[in-house]
Simulated scan of single mutants.
Amino acid sequence: MEVRQAKQEELEALIKIEQICFPPAEAATVEDMRKRFNVFQENFIVAVEEGKVVGFINGCVTDKPELPDALYHDTALHNPEGAYQTVFGLNVLPQYRKQGIAEQLVSHLIKLSKERGKTGIVLTCKEHLVHYYQKFGFKHLGVSASSHGGSKWNDMLLIFD
């Protein structure tokens, strides 16, 4: 398994994976995915198995330890010098799940964010994933104000030591 920054020629595969892994109301649109990739490609980390992209993690960088819905759609809010890496999505194709790939992607993003001098990582997740992110050191801050995709989300924050 190779975990690394995504390449331009992998964008279409990432778009397909996003559409497979999230319900239509929550998945990024093709247009949003393209805009995000063009603005912060360095924050798209892929897992590659035998030459095939099987998962990825991505998000922008912001100044505040929060993930308002506006960040999902307005790439102008991305601040590469910001203190907090966000996670918009952690995606692994269904047939590759339960093999530790998501864990490798999260761990890689944590390491990379530390190397880049970030203060921490912020994300939102559904209730059943709170415990999953807590094992990486994320703190559950409660129910999020987010209404992304019409779902209920939980705010999670990891501050680096």
Rank of each mutant, 00 (worst) to 15 (best):
E2W: 01
E2Q: 15
E2C: 09
E2R: 15
R4A: 06
Q5N: 15
A6D: 02
A6F: 04
K7L: 08
Q8I: 13
E10S: 03
L11D: 08
A13M: 10
A13P: 09
L14T: 00
I15T: 06
I17A: 03
I17H: 06
I17V: 12
E18Q: 13
E18I: 01
Q19T: 04
Q19W: 09
I20P: 07
F22K: 09
P24V: 06
E26H: 10
E26S: 15
A28D: 03
A28W: 04
T29W: 07
V30H: 13
E31S: 13
D32C: 12
R34W: 06
R34Q: 11
R36C: 00
V39F: 04
V39A: 05
E42Q: 15
F44P: 07
F44Q: 03
I45M: 15
I45L: 12
V46Q: 07
V46S: 03
V46P: 10
A47D: 10
V48E: 09
V48C: 08
E50G: 14
G51C: 06
V53S: 07
V53W: 04
G55P: 11
G55Y: 07
F56S: 00
V61C: 03
K64L: 10
K64H: 15
E66S: 08
E66T: 15
P68C: 03
P68W: 00
P68F: 03
D69G: 13
D69M: 02
L71F: 12
L71H: 07
H73K: 15
A76D: 12
L77W: 11
N79G: 06
P80Q: 00
P80A: 02
T86F: 06
T86W: 13
G89D: 01
N91R: 12
Q95W: 10
Y96M: 05
Y96E: 01
R97M: 04
K98Q: 09
Q99A: 00
Q99V: 08
I101V: 05
A102R: 14
E103V: 05
E103G: 02
E103L: 09
Q104I: 01
L105F: 11
L105P: 13
L109D: 02
L109V: 02
I110Q: 14
I110M: 11
K111E: 09
K111V: 03
S113R: 10
R116T: 04
R116M: 12
R116V: 03
G117H: 12
T119M: 02
T119H: 12
G120R: 07
V122Q: 01
V122M: 09
L123T: 01
T124H: 04
T124K: 06
K126A: 10
H128R: 14
V130H: 07
V130Y: 08
V130S: 02
H131E: 11
H131Y: 09
Y132I: 02
Y132F: 12
Y133Q: 02
Y133G: 00
Y133V: 04
Y133R: 06
F136N: 11
F136W: 15
K139I: 01
K139W: 07
H140G: 00
L141V: 02
L141S: 07
L141K: 10
L141I: 04
G142H: 14
G142M: 03
G142S: 04
G142R: 12
V143Y: 10
S144A: 03
A145C: 09
A145H: 11
G149E: 01
G150K: 12
S151G: 10
S151H: 08
S151A: 15
N154Q: 11
M156C: 00
M156R: 09
L157F: 14
L157A: 02
L158K: 13
I159E: 09
F160I: 05
F160Y: 14
D161W: 14
